[in-house]
Amino acid sequence: MTGLAGDRPDIAGAITFFYYDDHEAAVRWYREVLGFEPYFEQDWLVLLRIAPGHSLGLVDAVNGSQRPVPGLNKGATLSIETDQLAEWHSRLKAAGSAGLDDDFQPGCRGRTTEFRVRDPGGYFVEFFRWVDPPV
């Protein structure tokens, strides 16, 4: 495997996929509460642009290649970097979002300030800003 790092092909973007028993509730929450706009929609799949080069795919429980993970530990978190933590926290609080942290928490062993909320399928969505950004 030596020498592979410099030979890496280009990447145009990345999509994270989350899987839902109630697909419509998830789509509605990401559109209405977070304000993410879809750029591709089918009855079983919606792709939302989060930031340039990064998207979130919301997939229903029966048509995707995976299935929703039962319980509260989904094994995945959507982490969103922002300098507007207070504004995001206020927006989510006003929307009555489930599982919203009451206040900001230290994260990444003190390297970030963050809070988390749960989406309608139980996935954590974490909003954070760096205390000391990596170089």
Results as ranks from 00 to 15, higher is better:
M1L: 02
M1R: 09
T2M: 10
T2C: 01
T2N: 06
T2L: 07
L4D: 14
A5P: 00
G6P: 01
G6C: 05
D7C: 11
D7N: 12
R8A: 15
P9C: 01
I11A: 07
A12H: 09
A12T: 06
G13P: 04
A14S: 03
T16S: 12
Y19D: 05
Y20P: 02
D21I: 00
D22W: 15
E24H: 14
A25M: 06
A26E: 09
W29N: 03
W29T: 01
Y30N: 02
E32C: 02
E32A: 02
L34M: 14
F36W: 14
E37N: 05
F40M: 07
E41H: 01
Q42N: 10
V46C: 06
L48S: 04
L48I: 11
R49P: 07
A51M: 12
P52V: 08
P52T: 05
G53N: 11
G53D: 06
G53V: 05
G53M: 14
S55R: 00
L58Q: 01
L58K: 06
V59P: 03
V62N: 11
S65P: 14
Q66P: 03
Q66R: 15
R67K: 15
R67T: 14
R67G: 03
V69P: 03
G75K: 11
G75Q: 15
T77R: 05
L78M: 09
S79D: 08
I80K: 02
E81Q: 15
Q84I: 01
Q84L: 09
L85F: 07
H89L: 14
H89R: 15
R91H: 06
G96I: 08
A98W: 11
G99Y: 13
L100P: 08
D101I: 03
D101S: 14
D103R: 13
D103I: 05
F104R: 05
F104K: 02
F104E: 04
F104T: 02
Q105F: 08
P106W: 05
G107M: 00
G110L: 05
G110S: 06
T112D: 03
E114G: 01
F115A: 00
R116M: 08
R118G: 13
P120E: 09
P120D: 03
G122C: 12
F124S: 13
F127M: 10
V131H: 03
